[in-house]
């Protein structure tokens, strides 16, 4: 564990909590892409199946359970509890355009053609593009609530910090995982446009 990975995990946790609290407190998921949240729930489900097979550390297990729990709670709030406030017309990105190619790529490019490894690879590739429906929705509505921009900021920051974590691990441990690094770069690059607007605008954003 290093400072970049720890702050990255905390930034990710902050993003997840911010979103969940925003929906819960305002009793509304206006401006939130339910499809991105479904994809994130799928990312965590396929990546954290090893919860059932191996124990790494209390921190690791606790964070995985929190991530999965919050992801499904968010999907539940959007599609069940506050369904009336879900803006389905603007959340029109076709998820299958992401899941199918990512599934195919995970079968072609991976470290090991085993069940858990393919699922892990699928989740890494999917996470890199899972935010697209949300960014697409904001570009369609032309605006985002301030709290949503904070959510996106911390979510984008987490993987950027992970890139520094991988530099750190390569330098000090001689370890690197090309699949995670390339996907992490793609994921972070997708936020660049948003980061620019977030930093220059500060308040509500129009992509």
């Amino acid at each position: 564990m290093n400072i970049f990975r720890l702050t990255g995990d905390l930034s990710h946790l902050a993003a997840i909590i911010i979103l969940l609290l925003k929906i819960w407190k305002t009793r509304s998921c206006a401006g939130i892409s339910g499809k991105s949240q479904i994809l994130f729930a799928l990312v965590f489900t396929t990546r954290y199946l090893d919860l059932l097979t191996s124990f790494i550390s209390l921190y690791n297990t606790t964070m995985k359970v929190i991530y999965i729990g919050c992801a499904y709670a968010t999907v539940y709030l959007i599609y069940m509890k506050f369904k009336a406030t879900y803006d389905g017309n603007h959340d029109s990105f076709r998820m299958e355009f992401l899941v199918v190619p990512v599934g195919g790529l995970a079968c072609l490019v991976n470290h090991d053609f085993s069940f858990l490894e393919i699922l892990w690879t699928f989740s890494i590739y999917l996470e890199s593009v899972a935010i697209l429906p949300q960014l697409f929705m904001i570009s369609k509505t032309g605006e985002a609530e301030t709290i949503t921009t904070h959510y996106l900021f911390f979510l984008g920051l987490y993987r950027a910090l992970y890139l520094f974590n991988w530099i750190w691990r390569f330098y000090f441990e001689g370890f690197f995982d090309m699949i995670a690094i390339v996907a992490g770069m793609v994921q972070t690059i997708l936020y660049c446009d948003f980061f620019y607007l977030y930093v220059t605008k500060g308040q509500g954003i129009s992509l």
């Binding site: 990975r5 995990d9 990710h12 090893d50 191996s54 790494i56 550390s57 690791n60 964070m63 995985k64 991530y67 470290h111 090991d112 490894e117 892990w120 992970y162 974590n165 370890f175 995982d177 995670a180």
Partner: peptide, 10 residues
């Protein structure tokens, strides 16, 4: 490389 090595990351 041993792919299981980085599974300590979230």
């Amino acid at each position: 490389d041993d792919p299981s090595r980085n599974k300590d990351e979230l």
